[in-house]
């Protein structure tokens, strides 16, 4: 008899006749904000900014310029980009070296990373990465440098249930809501936290 059998046996003994009792989950909580697209976008911008994260809302034709300006204002000379990042986003960069992320390479602390995202949540001011196109592996966004994240307006879900429904559970997900904080009551930013985040929301 294996430990698996013994543990499962103990569970069955413990539950006795109650085992397998069906329990209905009342799912009458809110799934949607009941707000229009513009209000959802406005809430997302407000919540992200409320976390102290710089966020800008730009038109589709302004994205490349806004991205270049964000990097220029921070004097960034080199960026690392994940596979599948749309090349148009980087069209306006001048004097910035673009290095593709290669698994196995040790990340340089100072490097800036540009990614897209898989989804975002307005109510919580969250961005979600899942390793998909233009997002890269988990390690990419864990360096202490700047992380510039581009969010398409139609990627913004109103609520957590909407976002969960949009995402594939099998993908390696990272949900980021404001800066990571150290444990305890101080709420100070974690000294070893990942990159500083900056968000660009692009209208489609």
């Amino acid at each position: 008899m294996t430990s698996r059998d013994r543990v499962l046996g103990r569970i069955r003994d413990a539950l006795g006749p109650a085992r397998g009792t069906p329990v209905a989950v009342p799912r009458d909580y809110r799934r949607h904000l009941g707000a229009g697209r513009a209000d959802v976008l406005a809430l997302f911008l407000e919540r992200v900014a409320g976390h102290g994260t710089p966020v800008r809302h730009v038109g589709a034709d302004e994205l490349a310029t806004a991205l270049a300006a964000a990097l220029w204002s921070r004097d960034v000379k080199r960026i690392i980009v994940p596979p599948g990042l749309p090349s148009g986003w980087l069209a306006e960069l001048d004097g910035v070296e673009i290095a593709p992320d290669a698994p196995g390479t040790a990340p340089d602390a100072a490097d800036t990373v540009v990614t897209g995202c898989a989804a975002a949540v307005a109510e919580t001011g969250t961005i979600v990465l899942d390793g998909g196109r233009g997002q890269g592996r988990r390690a990419l966004t864990l360096r202490p440098g700047l992380h510039l994240c581009v969010v398409h307006a139609d990627q913004i879900a109103g609520t957590v249930p909407e976002a969960v429904a949009r995402l594939l559970p099998s993908r390696p997900q990272t949900w980021l809501t404001g800066p990571a904080v150290a444990p305890g009551p101080s709420r100070a930013p974690s000294p070893h936290g990942p990159s500083a985040l900056e968000v660009l929301v692009v209208e489609d």
């Binding site: 989950v25 919580t124 249930p161 559970p169 099998s170 949900w175 809501t177």
Partner: peptide, 28 residues
């Protein structure tokens, strides 16, 4: 997986956050 939409919210809010600052999900 639909159960996540409940507990992600209620655990985070109970801890005083809209959502926990970092939520990671890994599968195999």
């Amino acid at each position: 997986r639909a159960d996540l939409e409940v507990l992600l919210q209620s655990v985070s809010r109970s801890a005083g956050e809209r959502l926990a600052p970092v939520v990671s999900a890994w599968t195999g």
